[in-house]
Design a protein around this nucleic acid. Structure first.
Lengths: 285, 285
DNA sequence: CCAATAGTGTCTGTAAGACAATATGGG
DNA sequence: CCCATATTGTCTTACAGACACTATTGG
């Protein structure tokens, strides 16, 4: 209280005279162990279903169980964001743009979320959402003995998440996810649904070039309800920079029908005013 | 890979036979120390300014510097959310509803964000936003030798946050915030601005009963731009459950003018379709 | 020609922006 | 009455929902 009493108007910086001395003598001796991990909900669309990348854990805990890819943040060497990019590359073999496609979702800290708490280690995780179009089939990598895309709808998320909240485990018939990953994945899905409304995120789900119908199918798949085709087209084309026309190309659609005009991603990131679902998350009541 | 190979379709739970044995022998011996803290951006409106509760730190690091209230999560005993509620009560002396008024903002993990990293301790923080109407003047409590409300606009946030990102410190004339708290506070302000659009959050900023003008002043203050009064009224009253009429009461406004009708908070949480600012965060370019 | 999909036109209801007009209180 | 604020009314414009209609391909 005495030494740097006049600090108020001077601005910060931890490099004060007295404080430098304090730091020199500081030892973080008695901190009980927290572990910091990242978990990734990597989403894509395959055969008209929203799919998530899951790995089969090669190590304890939840060995041989299905889980979101992720891993430990390297102490002192990186942030959670950097760890997420690194894990993503390790898991998928792809390089990734950080700010564009990786979105910090939420941090999960409940002491009961990891069984290692019983041994005195509290493991907390920062969850991220990533989107992908056209990812190759995943390769099993470090600490995973298998990896595959799972349709999110097949995972019985709501029941799993509820079961987790109630009793800390789940015994249904769908693949059970390790830790609280069902909760994380449910939150991730809701985040993506919401972001489709007010961002151009949907274009990340489709390989270029794409038709307006392709883009509309993204909304249909993620929202679970189809926007009216004519109005959807009007909206997308009326937002400057949502999509830009691509030179006519050759594509062979399955059956007949008029071939669609093709587009690429535009430079816009926001959609304003937003596209609205019928039943958004919040609700009015 | 062998022991519980058939786990896939059986659902999770870390209580498997083999895994119980592993856990019994597990010791988290060699985990380098992470510390987990929470920081709170507690916002209110005072004399037509958006204000944040800051404390003057009584302990190192950044001793005697201004900072967001917060503290360590108790290892093994609580989640970040529970710690936030506890700290909030300790700092303000008020009980608080968790889900309603405390919102997890983001987690900050950059190794450079806390000087104790130099001593080998990586401190990460989960930031929360809380809103308040009618909070009493704060009392200095544990590990804080002073606490007061600061108008957010007086804190030179943008310059502080930029300076922090560039060089890890800030030397301007406004009160400098400890750690990366200028960044956190800027994120918090943007979160609140956005939430006013699609939630009934604004009612949390005004003491009951309130007039439509009181509510409009919240938007004016937080957004920095005034919604058109007539249209604003129409919108608020057209959303069911946004506000409910309160029985006529006695109030003495400063000057003359027709006395306003008074309302209380309704039960609705979402506003759909949303109220829109002119220049939202995302932007179209 | 038909089937199938893409794309256009148009009517309508809702709601926001702008702003004038009216109501209700205190000097 | 004058002032200040609240509240209502109304005209206009923007845009989403709905849906009929036209266009362009393959068989």
């Amino acid at each position: 209280v005495t030494a740097s009493g006049g600090r108020t108007g001077r601005g910060g910086g931890a490099g004060g005279d007295e404080e430098a001395g304090w730091l020199a003598g500081y030892r973080p001796a008695d901190f009980p162990p927290f572990a910091l991990t990242v978990d990734l909900a990597i989403l894509t669309i395959r055969s008209r279903s929203l799919c998530v990348l899951l790995i089969r854990r090669g190590e304890h805990p939840y060995r041989a169980g299905w889980a979101l890819p992720g891993g430990h943040v390297r102490h002192g060497a990186e942030s959670a964001e950097q760890a997420a990019v690194r894990e993503l590359r390790e898991e998928t073999g792809l390089t990734w743009a950080v700010d564009t496609d990786l979105d910090q979702l939420r941090t999960y800290t409940d002491p009961r979320r990891d069984p290692r708490m019983a041994a005195g280690l509290q493991v907390i995780t920062v969850a991220f959402v990533a989107l992908a179009a056209d990812l190759p089939d995943p390769v099993a990598a470090t600490d995973a003995d298998a990896a595959r895309w799972w349709p999110v709808d097949d995972l019985d998320l709501d029941r799993q998440a509820t079961a987790w909240a109630d009793q800390g485990r789940y015994d249904g018939t769908a693949p059970g996810l390790a830790f609280d990953h069902a909760v994380i994945l449910r939150d991730a899905r809701e985040r993506v649904r919401a972001k489709l409304e007010y961002t151009t995120l949907a274009t990340r789900f489709v390989p270029e070039p794409f038709s307006i119908s392709d883009l509309r199918r993204v909304y249909t798949t993620v929202w679970g309800q189809e926007p009216e085709p004519a109005n959807f087209r009007r909206k997308v084309l009326s937002v400057p920079g949502f999509v830009v026309p691509a030179p006519a190309a050759h594509r062979a659609p399955g059956g007949g029908g008029r071939p669609p005009a093709l587009y690429r991603r535009g430079s816009a990131t926001g959609v304003h005013p937003p596209l609205l679902r019928e039943t958004p998350g919040g609700g009015t009541g």
